[in-house]
């Protein structure tokens, strides 16, 4: 990873640009709200810019930045809690069978929404951003074992009948 000089916006933005896409995907998956996700990414970028001097190991920039995004998602949810009240889909869906896959996807999103922030975060990072558990641990600020345990627990809550080995494929 290129050395980042805090005073140089250009070097920072060069490093930041490739991180915007995973950050945006993470925010969309966490918030289920594209405009809010974009706001979160913008805010997280500014926070990262201001606090960059505190990051001593720049090889961890990606995990550090996604950690800021995750934290901003949590804050965004707190700020917008009212709008989340009605976000879930109805418990019984009546749709044509041709849209069965769409319903399954909606069901999965709804199930993920019912997970707590921390559990949902590890699922999104592992299954959607395809990050290894060691990197997830850096994002959530926990040990690798703790991150793995949290992931297993989240999978169990998400799909109680699914074997962990099968889920991790």
């Amino acid at each position: 990873m290129t050395e980042v000089h805090p005073a140089s916006e250009r070097s920072f933005t060069d490093l930041l640009a490739p991180l915007v896409q995973p950050a945006y995907r993470l925010a969309c998956a966490m918030l289920h709200d594209a405009p809010a996700a974009e706001d979160v990414v913008q805010d997280a970028s500014l926070i990262a810019w201001r606090k960059l001097s505190k990051l001593h190991d720049h090889s961890k920039l990606r995990a550090w930045f996604l950690g800021i995004v995750a934290n901003e998602c949590r804050n965004a949810k707190r700020r917008r809690w009212v709008s989340w009240v009605n976000l879930g889909l109805p418990s019984v869906l009546s749709v044509p069978s041709s849209e069965e896959n769409s319903v399954k996807r909606a069901d999965l999103r709804r199930a993920l929404l019912q997970l707590g922030h921390d559990d949902r975060l590890v699922v999104v990072l592992y299954f959607y951003l395809d990050m290894p558990v060691a990197d997830i641990a850096l994002v959530v600020g926990a040990s690798t074992d703790a991150a793995r345990a949290r992931l297993y627990r989240a999978i169990h809550r998400l799909r109680p009948g699914l074997a962990i080995e099968e889920a991790l494929r």
Partner: peptide, 9 residues
């Protein structure tokens, strides 16, 4: 599950 999650999001 990975493919499901990708697809859903």
């Amino acid at each position: 599950l990975r493919r499901d999650v990708h697809s859903a999001f």
